[in-house]
């Protein structure tokens, strides 16, 4: 024996949400999965089940995945009611079968939120996140127009905190876990990252107003500060960023209400 990882065999029942398309009715279907290796990842188990289904001429379970190492944010199962499964600070693809016991019934559902419409089985459409970023999740800098990188020093604590926020993988587990299906954590992470850096200051107010506005428009729920999001987040993004964004938002609303604006029309450079 090499170590405590030597494989054990286990069998479980998967209770999987099957739904052919957004308009089709959905239901749970049980699939026995036998003699699995405990070193298998959860998604590898789905691969195995899918190969079996295919051999039996049935349609395999559609599920989203890509990198399989917890960085792309594609995988999106809710396992026994918890987005990304039982682990803490990891994504579905980093969940291994050793987290389960022989004989377990494992309920697998898609991330559920109205703003993430179901595509098929366990796959949902998270393009709402892209729309929020398109509304303002950037610093407007044209390629080639940047000053020398070291001409803008960034205090290390700020840079580190910005990186904490930037670690978000855009998976949507925060929305899936929040009792209100609120996207606050995702939006707060982006707003905070850019708001913490000097480069992000000129558009700071505009950015938070635009992004929060877009989020509201897209049908996400409202935050009631329950902190399920940060607990489910595979990157353990802190809900402190939500407080930070709330502050930014209040300030920006005040300032945009009071700030004088120039009457000059654009294009002065002719």
């Amino acid at each position: 024996m090499v170590a405590d990882n030597s494989s054990k065999s286990l069998s479980v029942t998967l209770r999987v949400w099957r739904q052919a398309g957004p308009a089709a009715p959905g239901r749970f279907v049980d699939y026995p999965a036998r003699n699995l290796n405990s070193n298998m990842s959860f998604l590898e188990m789905l691969d195995v089940v899918n190969d079996e289904l295919t051999k039996q001429g049935e349609e395999p379970i559609a599920f989203a995945h890509d990198c399989r190492e917890g960085i792309c944010g594609t995988c999106s199962c809710t396992i026994n009611g918890k987005p990304h499964g039982p682990g803490h600070g990891i994504a579905t693809c980093q969940t291994y079968l050793r987290s389960f016991k022989d004989g377990d019934v494992i309920v697998v559902e898609p991330f559920r939120a109205r703003a993430f419409p179901l595509v098929k089985d366990l796959v949902v459409d998270r393009s709402a996140f892209d729309q929020i970023i398109q509304a303002g999740g950037f610093i407007s800098v044209r390629t080639g127009a940047a000053p020398d990188a070291n001409s803008i020093p960034v205090p290390k604590p700020d840079a580190d905190l910005a990186m904490d926020a930037a670690a978000c993988i855009g998976c949507g587990a925060c929305v899936a876990a929040c009792k209100n299906a609120s996207a606050m954590l995702f939006v707060a992470a982006k707003v905070s990252q850019l708001g913490l850096l000097p480069q992000g200051q000129p558009e700071r107010d505009q950015r938070v107003l635009a992004m929060v506005g877009k989020m509201d428009e897209l049908g996400f729920g409202n935050c009631t500060n329950q902190y399920e999001c940060s607990a489910a987040c595979p990157k353990s993004i802190s809900h402190d960023f939500i407080a930070r964004m709330n502050r930014d938002y209040l300030k920006a609303s005040l300032r945009s209400a009071l700030k004088p604006t120039s009457n000059a029309s654009g294009g002065g450079a002719g």
């Binding site: 800098v141 390629t143 127009a145 070291n150 020093p153 930037a166």
Partner: peptide, 21 residues
């Protein structure tokens, strides 16, 4: 130029205590 561009976009590269890259 790439580093300049990315920093201007807000890429949070690691920094030293003096605030430089």
């Amino acid at each position: 130029n790439i580093i300049d561009q990315c920093v201007a976009q807000g890429v949070p590269f690691a920094r030293e205590y003096g605030g430089l890259l």
